[in-house]
Simulated assay, not measured.
Amino acid sequence: MAKLVHPKGQLKKYYIFSPFLRIFHWIMVWCIAGLFITGLLIMDPISGGPGHEPTFADWRLSVDLIRNIHFLLGFIFTASFTLRIYGWIINRGDRLLPKFWTTKYMEETVEVALHYSLLKYSHKPYLRNPLARGSYLALYVMVLVEIVTGFAMYYMPNSTGVPASIFGWSIGMYGEMIFHWVHHYFAWFIMFFAMGHVYMVFRADLMEREGEAASMFSGTKTLAHIPSDIDDLKDKKGHVAED
Rank of each mutant, 00 (worst) to 15 (best):
A2R: 10
Y14K: 13
Y14V: 10
Y15F: 02
F17S: 06
S18Y: 08
S18C: 11
F20I: 00
R22G: 10
F24A: 12
F24H: 15
F24E: 06
H25D: 04
H25G: 06
H25T: 06
W26N: 13
I32H: 03
A33K: 05
A33V: 15
I37F: 08
I37W: 04
T38F: 01
I42Y: 03
M43A: 15
P45W: 08
G49S: 04
F56V: 02
R60P: 00
R60K: 01
S62K: 02
V63G: 13
N68M: 07
N68K: 11
I69D: 03
F71D: 01
L72C: 02
F75I: 09
I76C: 03
I76H: 00
S80T: 03
R84C: 01
Y86Q: 05
W88T: 11
W88C: 12
N91D: 15
R92P: 05
D94H: 02
R95H: 10
L96Q: 06
P98G: 05
T103S: 13
T103W: 05
K104W: 08
K104Q: 04
Y105E: 14
Y105A: 14
L118K: 07
L118T: 06
L118M: 10
K120T: 06
Y121P: 05
S122H: 11
S122Y: 09
H123Y: 15
P125L: 11
L127G: 10
N129W: 07
P130V: 12
R133G: 12
G134Q: 02
G134R: 06
G134S: 08
A138G: 06
Y140V: 05
V143Q: 09
I147W: 08
I147N: 02
V148T: 04
T149A: 14
G150A: 10
M156K: 15
N158M: 01
S159D: 15
G161Q: 12
P163M: 02
F167C: 00
S170P: 09
I171T: 14
I171F: 04
I171V: 15
M173V: 14
M173Q: 13
Y174H: 11
I178T: 13
H180A: 00
V182A: 14
H184R: 13
Y185C: 09
A187Y: 05
M191D: 00
F193M: 01
F193W: 07
V198N: 02
F202W: 13
E210G: 10
G211A: 04
E212H: 00
S215M: 14
F217N: 07
G219T: 07
L223W: 02
L223Y: 03
I226Q: 08
P227T: 13
S228N: 11
D229L: 00
D229A: 05
I230S: 10
I230R: 12
D231G: 06
K234G: 03
D235A: 10
K237L: 11
G238Y: 05
H239P: 00
A241W: 04
D243V: 05
